[in-house]
Each structure stands twice: as C-alpha cells, then as structure tokens.
Simulated assay, not measured.
Amino acid sequence: MEAYIELLRSMIQTPSFSREEGPVALLVRNFLTSKRIAFHEKGWNTWARNKFWDDKKPVILLNSHIDTVKPVKNWTKDPFSAEVDGDVLIGLGSNDAGASLVTLMAVFVHFYQEENLPYNLIFAASAEEEISGNGGMVSLVEEFGDVKLAIVGEPTQMQMAIAEKGLMVLDCTAHGRAGHAARNEGENALYKAVDDINILRQYKFEKVSDVLGEVKLSVTQINAGYQHNVVPDNCTFVVDVRTNEFYSNQEACDEIQGLIQSEVVARSFKLNSSGIPVTHPIVQRGIALGLSYYGSPTTSDQAVMPFPSIKIGPGDSARSHTADEYILVSEIENGFEVYCSLLEKLEI
C-alpha cells in the first residue's frame, strides 16, 4: 500500500476545495495512467472500468470524493503538510475522504485485470461532494448506466452504514412591522421568530426509525435588525433538518411550515434519506465477516444515487471537518483487506 499512501500524501499537499479540485483530479488521473488504466473525465470527476468488462454482468460502483472543506482556524499543524508520525498521517482530507479514495483505488487496481469476476467494477473519484454540487456525483449517474450496487467510501471505521439521514436546509422569515423601540409601536419580527424557534426546538416528528432514529431539527443561524432603536420588521433564521426514511424532504418541509408562522423556503429537496435492506447480499456478506451495521447521521453522495448503496471506509467520522484531522496508515491497510473480503465472495 506504500504507493497509495504516497498518493494520499500528495493529495493532502494539494488543496482541493470544492469546485477547485483540478490539481488533485490530475493526481488521480496520473496515477491511473501509471497503472495503464484508461479512464473517463467529466469536469473534475474521473472514472474507470475494469479491464474485462462484460455487458452481461452486474455493475458495482466504487466511489469516494476528492474535494475537502476549508480548514478550521485552530489547526496546530499545517493542514497541507501531510506529516507522518509513526502510524499517524495528519492533513486536511486525510480522513474525509482521502483514505477511502486511495483504498478503493487500490481495491479497483487489485481486481482490474481479473478475467472471471462475477460483476463489473467502476472506480469513480468524484468532485463537489462536500457541497452536494451539481458538478459532482449528480452529473455522473447518467454516465454509469445500470448500477446494481455502490460502495461509497467515507470514514465509518470499516463498519457498514446501511442507511443515512437526508439533509434539508430551510430559510425561514418571520415578518413584523417596524416601529420606534422607545414607544409601543411596531410588531417585533424577532420575537415572532423566537416563538417559532421554540416550537421547532420542542417538536418531535411522530415516526422514529429503528436504524436512523428521529428526524432532527437544529436552528443554526439567526439575523434581525439594523439599528438599536428600531423594532425589526423581518427576522431570518436557518434550520438544518436531518430526515429519516419515513419522511421525504418535501413532506418534512410541509409539516414544519404547518407548525410555525414564519415563511419557510427549502434550498433543495434532493438530499433525501437513503438506505439498503439488511437482507441485501453486501450487508449479509459484511455480517458474515463480523462487521456491524448502523444508521449514519451524516449525508454523502449516497443521497443522489438512484441505486442501492452502502457507506463504509477507513477512518472515523468524528475526525472529519476538525482541526488536526488524521488517518492511521494501519486503518488504510485494514480497509483494503476488508473491502477485498467483501467483494471476493459477493454475489449480486
């Protein structure tokens, strides 16, 4: 795995913020070229097919993303240094999701020249995952054709995330009437917003998932007023909504609008909850290997995949988007073994 660890270090040393992934996409493409593997390009997305592709066989997609968030302010190391200290590799994107990407690439290369695979493999290094952008996986789905299963690489400690919550962001506006703060004038939009926020804070959606739990509402931003002596006539606030499989984002939005006075506008409905049955062969294969399964509270490119998928990868989600993000080299090595074991006797 040494070559893949070095590729990951090169990726960390090359900033790859969402929509700015070009230089890292080039690293991926150069690596595939060095392995004599032909690939396709679309924007900063790169994908390749196994050498002995057979249209009669089912297709498995191996996918992870090349973009990162921007570093938070309290890093104690250089986020782009790719410093190695024993088993620890530190750097922005090391855990989320560079380790998964290079490990899945190693798996793809491992199986690339096998003539008698019971399925076809596509390896895809996608862009814009961190912003759910239209230039990422959304643009690739039509290129892949009929995919029977996707293995999405994200840090899960190599346990199986068989479902993940959907994500919806709501922009809410409480409307009032301006007036002088010193007199009993106006209608304070800020107070209206606070009342609505209190309703959302206490509200519980009725349907609770065995795997994903309850729908979660979090008010994360608020803004009102422009002068201390003027009663604000508008107050805006933002609600982060994480849905389970019992509610589409549209349904959750409609329910929230019925609870509060404020105007509610969803930025998008596209990132719905996703999941795969416990009875699916990939989950059963993992269970046979001693892997556990769970429902993930975080969202990935699974949300835009119209085919069954499972999320699994080296690293720990708790390290993602944090200062001094790191991955263990041993986690990558173990990840390679687990991925290969999942695929070697898989029948779909």
Rank of each mutant, 00 (worst) to 15 (best):
K165Q: 07
D146G: 03
I256T: 03
F246P: 01
N229A: 12
T220P: 08
A189M: 06
I199L: 13
I222E: 04
A174W: 04
A174I: 04
A178R: 09
F269R: 02
K204L: 12
N244D: 09
V239S: 00
R201W: 09
D210A: 15
Y191R: 11
I197K: 01
A266Q: 02
G275H: 05
L200V: 04
I222H: 10
A181F: 07
S273A: 13
G145L: 10
A163S: 13
Q202H: 14
A189R: 03
V194H: 06
C253F: 07
K204E: 14
T243Q: 00
E251W: 04
T156L: 03
I199T: 12
E154F: 14
P281Q: 11
A161I: 02
I197H: 03
E255S: 15
V219T: 14
Y191G: 10
D146E: 15
N223E: 14
A174R: 03
L200W: 10
M168H: 08
Q221H: 12
A266K: 01
N272Q: 09
L259H: 11
I199C: 07
A163V: 04
P155L: 06
G166R: 02
R201P: 02
F144I: 03
F269C: 06
C235M: 07
E187R: 13
R183C: 11
G213V: 07
N198H: 14
N188E: 12
V239W: 00
D195T: 10
F237N: 00
T236H: 14
P281C: 12
H180Y: 15
N184A: 12
L167N: 01
V211P: 01
P232S: 05
V230M: 08
G225N: 04
I222W: 08
A174C: 12
V230A: 08
Y191E: 14
D196C: 10
